[in-house]
Design a protein around this nucleic acid. Structure first.
Lengths: 343, 343
DNA sequence: ATGATGCTTTGGAACGATCAAATCAGCGGA
DNA sequence: TCCGCTGATTTGATCGTTCCAAAGCATCAT
């Protein structure tokens, strides 16, 4: 095999034009006369010509590649969220002619070392980061070094979340739990509990706020609200314990919104599936076991992230806003046979 | 920012040698005199020089990049297996100075289209494929086009699995279920059932064979064996149904080995956690809920895959054998609180 | 006719690295 | 002394693409 691949010169010769014209047909077709354009295109198709990616990158000094960190396996039932995001991102990126390069890192310092490696080798021209933390050194490094990047996750706790040097996409957790709560209310539930993470995590607080807002709008007094909300770490057992605590405090609770599928599963086990529970993440476990959950619409998130990178890339990004909030979707599931068996 | 990156010429000038010598220090240090080598290395470190990846690729016609397909999200509890493999692979690849590029494809034809795209653009110089099927057109294409690749998964049903044009790594499912069965036997179980996929899938049959072998070795007669084995599709509900069928046929079954964690979860739900069940994949769900499972040791698999690519790359690969079977490990878990609650 | 105008096309150079062949220095043997 | 040999280093060419400046060439107004 190993046939020699046709080059732009081969195409040019076969089409009776110059190299540059071929290049123009590929990159800026509008400046080439129609007849020439068609002829060149025909030859390209016939020879099966494909531009040599590395040569192009060398010349243009851009790589058309975005780097994504593949996190150390997060564990837990919802661990797959990032992987699903990654999948959606890859698919969208392909459609835009972008490559997705992976890297891993043990900690932030290690990750910054990777940044230098990838940037210095001109391997990538943008980064997509997930799960940013408070005062993240990674984003600071990227900003300081003028790198293009977008994060999946708001920069919680930063003074100016609208800072245009930091582009981000996130899921509107608040809207999600709000919608879930309203859905349960519409279905007749009146004492809807919330199992959330301990206060202090931006994401967790945001999700709790959505539930609280929906309940308040429905006229539930604040005093009752605070009794209906229980905190739990993100494990199945903690979810179970929290659910039991909730029932002890409010025996007539008639539905629950949980901050994650993991916690939701704990709640389901505690009640034997007697109460409707809506989790968060729409994880494989939720699907397999058959309970309702809030879907993050990672496909939309990925699309938005790439759109933002487009914007970042262009010089005229001054006017555009640098972030997107994606509204999640509540996926209701009838209790499955498997779930009934929990009883 | 956007400082100009130092090139090999800059280093050469600063070190008072020629470009080529710098290149030699980097690629074939042994042919450079010690004193020169050290001097160049010092300058490299001082200037923070890093070779421009695309330029090198253009010249050498190799990319130091391997492509991995990110499958359309498989769904189901065990869906994360591939993602974990991917993570392990990325980590190992980094250590070897390889980049990992992702791509997606809807079907085999689409995937072959991706092959051409990646190969023609000289983007990658090896492929890692997962979950190969019988008479896989993808591997045939890769062989026909002289591409370097390794598969995670045996070429089931191929005439000569030792075919040296097809390198593969796989998990020894048979050894895994065998070990699991022996473990249960050692713990006192005597009527150990097996919940497997319908006959015909190489992987599923292999896993069943391990259980059957262990049971036969322990002296269980063939007639009883066939009654202890039940088939189930890979869903929680099918697992539950199969478990009920097994119990109807053999009411005194006292333990179960399942072909996957999904099926295992169904079995657990059916029995309320009364019988010990060992699943396969050691998925997040197994960890979260707390039941035993067979771990595929994806880290080993990834390392082996990269080793094989090394071998493939070298010309002297004639002597080496072209595959690796990784023995999985049984992870026993005490019944967790969550599991007890299933009761 | 002439030159200005706008659109297409062209040849040469450059991107940053490595390959292949040439050069150079040092050394032993004839 | 001169030649050949070995090992270390340098020079020139090249990979495939796009950028740049300028040339070609109709068309149109002067």
């Amino acid at each position: 095999m190993a046939r020699r691949l046709p080059t732009v010169s081969d195409v040019a010769r076969a089409a009776g034009v110059s190299r540059q014209t071929v290049s123009n047909v590929l990159n800026t077709p509008e400046i080439v006369r129609e007849a020439t354009r068609e002829r060149v295109r025909a030859v390209v198709a016939e020879l099966g010509y494909r531009p040599h990616a590395s040569a192009r990158r060398l010349r243009t000094q851009r790589s058309s590649t975005i780097a994504v960190r593949l996190d150390p396996f997060a564990g837990g039932i919802s661990g797959a969220v990032l992987d699903r995001f990654l999948h959606a991102l890859t698919e969208r990126a392909e459609a835009k002619g972008l490559r997705v390069l992976l890297y891993t890192a043990r900690d932030a310092a290690d990750e910054i070392r990777q940044f230098t490696r990838l940037v210095d080798g001109s391997d990538v021209d943008a980064f997509v980061l997930a799960s940013t933390s408070y005062g993240d050194p990674r984003t600071e490094w990227l900003i300081a070094h003028g790198q293009t990047f977008v994060t999946f996750g708001r920069p919680w706790g930063v003074a100016d979340p609208e800072d245009l040097r930091h582009f981000w996409v996130d899921v509107d957790g608040r809207a999600g739990t709000r919608a879930a709560t309203e859905r349960l209310w519409a279905d007749g539930a009146r004492r809807i509990g919330f199992l959330g993470w301990p206060a202090g995590s931006g994401t967790g607080d945001d999700r709790r706020a959505g539930w609280a807002a929906a309940m308040a709008d429905a006229g539930v007094p604040a005093g009752r609200l605070s009794r209906l909300s229980v905190e739990a770490e993100d494990t199945v057992t903690a979810g179970r314990t929290a659910m039991l605590a909730l029932l002890a405090r409010e025996p007539d609770a008639d539905a629950v919104v949980a901050v994650s599928d993991t916690v939701a599963l704990g709640a389901l086990i505690a009640t034997g599936g007697a109460l409707p529970v809506i989790g968060f993440d729409n994880s494989p476990a939720a699907e397999a076991i058959g309970f309702s959950s809030i879907d993050q619409r990672l496909d939309e998130v990925a699309a938005a992230a790439l759109e933002l990178l487009d914007v970042v890339g262009r010089a005229d990004s001054a006017g555009a806003d640098g972030h997107r909030l994606i509204a999640p979707r509540v996926v209701m599931r009838a209790h499955s046979a498997a779930l009934d068996l929990l009883r």
